[in-house]
Amino acid sequence: MYEIRIHSRGGQGGVTAARLLADAAFRGGKYATASPFYGAERRGAPVVSFVRIDDRPIKVYSQIQHPDMVVVLDPSIMEAVDIFQGLKSEGEILLNSSHPITFEGYRTHCVDLTGIAIARTLVVAGSPVVNTPLLGALAKVGIISLDAARAAIRGMFSDNRNVQAAEDAYGELVL
């Protein structure tokens, strides 16, 4: 089982990102669950969501203790939240960042999801939409296929710019 924890801020689309990822994994023939952890958050507060991907039906509902990967949609969250908590050694970190950052003991990938969203004019109520480009980045890392990412995005959003943004992220992320 591959376990992913997504850190975001309320209103940033982290929950939708988890759902899109599980959907894409499912379309790729895997079993997947997405379980957002709901607190009393309002816009701007730190939020976590969990995605599990496996070849067998998933029976676990409790929160992910030892993720294989951590996704951070807003790096400023690291000032408030310990994103490394429980992360497996040599685990992967996917950061929404315009400049490269590395963390010792982990495989870190950086991609400017915010920049991609703005370039594609994907801005809703003042917030750049980072969850659809995220799917492209996750495809590049190999969690899902790019086709599955496209299909999941199309299943939820009719605006094709979301798919283009995912393709942009797929292209921009250098492994």
């Binding site: 759902r19 959907d23 499912f26 079993y31 669950t33 379980s35 957002p36 709901y38 509902y61």
Partner: peptide, 12 residues
Amino acid sequence: LDGFTLSHTMQP
């Protein structure tokens, strides 16, 4: 059905 744990969890 369990609140959030099942109501808000996505599964096949």
